[in-house]
Simulated scan of single mutants.
Amino acid sequence: MTLLSAQALHVTYPRRHGSPPARAVDGVELGIGAGEIVALVGESGCGKTTLARALLGLEPPTGGRVVFDGEPLRYSSRALKAYRRRVQLVLQDPTGSLNPRHTVYEAVAEGLRIHGHGGDERTAVAEALSRAGLRPAERFFLRYPHELSGGQRQRVVIAGALVLQPELLVADEPVASLDASVRGEILALLLRLRADLGLSALVVTHDLGLAWNIADRVAVMYLGRIVETGDVEQVLTAPRHPYTQALLSVLPEAPGDPVVLTGEPPDPTRIPAGCRFHARCQVLASGEAERAGVADTCRNEDPEVLGGDARAQVACHWARARITA
């Protein structure tokens, strides 16, 4: 069952002086199933965080809709408050997420107080900290963020999300600011929470190694749109989109030479005609697309938007030509 989905989702930002709007999210279809971990990957500026904010209700879409548990998301204060009990955000910078003047207890209890928790607050906070791996929980109640390690601070942030007993976590680069030795512990924690609580998660990351270790499914984003999606093993061992191939080629264990993409991603106010990746595409530049008979199509025809289901899909004329050949 699909728990959360983006349906034909658009988020645009107006520009001054009559300039075209920036199309940060440009017709995304993406679904997250109950108990599923989906990794949303791509380089900086591709729209990952904007998409995550839209799924959380923090960024109202300019087109399309967000659907949670079969119901379209509504944007009244009351509806969003109820929604955020069920869908919680975990940010990448635990130091910036935590108020330095609040104790660990106050940081975790804040969500309960905002949402009017009717039960035993102390028990709920202790349980959330224990689930996040801070045991015995009472030892951490009166500590301040500066007294904790980076990994412990991230666990406090996760406990603050868990205390409301959500059904889905949106984790934006959850281990980017942590030492390598701590990253594995936090990833193992997220997997354990899925196993113990049935939690779903959308993990936003630029790190394909992280996606490999934690996700069931991966969605690769480029310039506001999903360009490849499928089971994590399938996408990361046999990528079909040239952009995914380029991202994977720079990993230390990748075979062959790294693919160095030319230039920067285009300005989202001036998305090129045809395939939005064609100006940087190594397949087009090498003549492979020409030999496959799709070079003109790449330059002039926009690939169709991928569906939001769990099928393996790719938005690339060349990759599709190879499949049908």
Rank of each mutant, 00 (worst) to 15 (best):
P166L: 03
P166S: 12
A289Y: 01
H10W: 12
A310S: 15
T297R: 15
Q152G: 03
A132Y: 10
P20S: 09
G151M: 10
F68G: 01
R299I: 08
A6N: 04
L199N: 05
G31L: 03
V87Q: 07
V232S: 09
E71V: 15
V175A: 04
R194M: 03
A176C: 11
L9S: 12
A137E: 04
L197S: 05
S200M: 03
D69H: 04
Y243W: 05
Y75G: 01
E173P: 06
H115C: 09
Q245S: 10
G70Q: 06
R131D: 13
A82L: 13
P255H: 10
N300D: 14
S76P: 00
P265G: 08
I323A: 15
Y105I: 05
V156R: 08
A34S: 14
R131M: 13
R194H: 05
T269F: 00
L247S: 02
A124V: 07
L148V: 04
S77F: 00
D216P: 06
L187Y: 06
G287L: 03
A285Q: 14
A8I: 00
G96Q: 13
G35Y: 05
D231I: 00
P72S: 08
G111P: 13
G31N: 01
D196N: 11
L89H: 13
I186M: 05
G150M: 02
L306S: 06
L247V: 06
E59N: 13
P252H: 11
C275K: 03
L164A: 09
E106N: 13
Q92L: 09
V235K: 11
T123L: 14
